[in-house]
Design a binder for these strands. Structure first.
Length: 388
DNA sequence: GTTGAGCGTT
């Protein structure tokens, strides 16, 4: 028998992979790797919980955890490293000839997408997985709209390599569809914005199928502190969208000098911790966490989040925070992954200058170092240096 | 249906 396997980023391109020994047998990792370079395992959606489930990997063979392979399931490749083919395939070449996506008929559309993917020798591709284009869902399409209408709307933002309206068995539009851009900039430009097609507003989002339901919402959310009143949600959206697709911006009403910004990709978040200048104002970005820990998993409004508590998450924040520049010797001494004790030991040296002052900024190391006011800690340190 | 919240892949 064969199972159906696809790369998550190229779901249209399904490859049948043989199973040795029937439905209860095993899949050879090397056979799989012949089709998917760099693959290390497979996963699939548990239909009951809609959570990803991994297959067992033993001695170069993949075994189904439920004992039997399902020929109808689409198994998805898992890579231990960035896909090497992503890096070496696609070279900048002559301008790719204008590929016209057929306006009607998703069969032809998919075929074209497939060809585009497999012949992707001239196309440039993003090697950074965080900047990879994915199919985007377009909600609210008029039942009368055709692929051509959708395509025309979004081509204004860049070249599309995929455009499809979902239809029922009778060919009747289901009112939504999927698009995929060639360039990530185009994806950033359209995502979570309102567009108009045939007199209806449509919304473009990352589809649920691309969202990791196991990942806490706070992993995609930042806490923006010291936010001036005159900075609007649009300002934040504009500023932070250059780092990644934004899912949501939340500023409490009335303004309380902070905001939450939620991204689609959690990988963006950890790159942002620190100070940012927005509209001439210095703001501080740190991690967020849910007010109620039990609601960590799932999709919750930012109003149910707060600035992360002093814990090891904040500690990581502090280190990735510019401490390496503020405290150049820190990394020399301790490297990249300090624990609490190491942090304590390091900052101990600065206690000397506040000796005698029990209220000095570092007199209570534990509280001062990762009290959440990371930038203030850095400022204190600079003060300290001034007195030395 | 003259419809209008959602979430796809042979």
């Amino acid at each position: 028998m064969f199972i159906r396997v696809a790369d998550e980023a190229k779901f249209n391109e399904i490859v049948e992979i043989p199973v040795d020994g029937g439905a209860e047998g095993s899949v050879s990792l090397s056979t799989l790797a012949a089709q998917f370079q760099g693959v290390s395992a497979l996963k699939y959606r548990n239909s009951e919980t809609s959570v990803w489930r991994g297959v067992r990997v033993v001695d170069g063979k993949l075994y189904h955890p439920d004992g039997t392979w399902d020929p109808n399931t689409v198994y998805v490749t898992v890579y231990s490293k960035p896909v090497s083919s992503d890096i070496k395939r696609k070279v900048v070449g002559e301008q790719q000839d204008e590929t016209i996506i057929p306006s009607i008929g998703h069969n032809t559309t998919q075929q074209l997408d497939y060809e585009q993917e497999t012949n992707n020798i001239h196309n440039e591709v993003e090697s950074d997985p965080n900047r990879r284009c994915v199919d985007l869902i377009v909600l609210g399409i008029s039942y009368r709209s055709l692929e051509a209408d959708v395509k025309k709307c979004f081509e204004a933002f860049g070249e599309l390599i995929f455009c499809e309206i979902k239809r029922d068995a009778n060919g009747q539009s289901r009112g939504f569809g999927f698009i995929r851009f060639k360039n990530y900039e185009s994806q950033l430009a359209v995502i979570n914005k309102r567009h108009f097609i045939d007199g209806r507003h449509v919304d473009v989002k990352i589809p649920d199928s691309k969202t990791n339901l196991q990942e806490p919402e706070c992993a995609r959310k930042i806490f923006v502190a010291r936010l001036p009143d005159n900075i609007t949600p649009d300002d934040l959206r504009q500023y932070f969208s250059k780092y990644g697709a934004i899912k949501d911006v939340y500023i409490p009403k009335p303004a309380r000098s902070f905001a939450f910004v939620t991204f689609h990709d959690s990988n963006v978040v950890r790159t942002l911790f620190g100070t940012h200048i927005i509209n001439g104002s210095s703001v501080t970005v740190g991690p967020a966490e849910p007010k109620n820990k039990t609601s960590a998993i799932g999709d919750y409004p930012s109003s149910t989040f707060k600035r992360a508590k002093p814990d090891h998450t904040s500690l990581r924040t502090l280190t990735s925070y510019g401490i390496s520049s503020t405290h150049p010797s820190y990394h020399q001494q301790y490297g990249q992954s300090p624990n609490t004790d190491m942090m304590h030991a390091y900052f101990q040296q600065y206690r000397a200058s506040t000796a005698g002052s029990s209220k000095g900024p570092f007199s209570n190391a534990q509280q001062s170092y990762w009290s959440g006011a990371h930038d203030e800690a850095a400022a204190m340190w600079q003060q300290q240096q001034h007195y030395r």
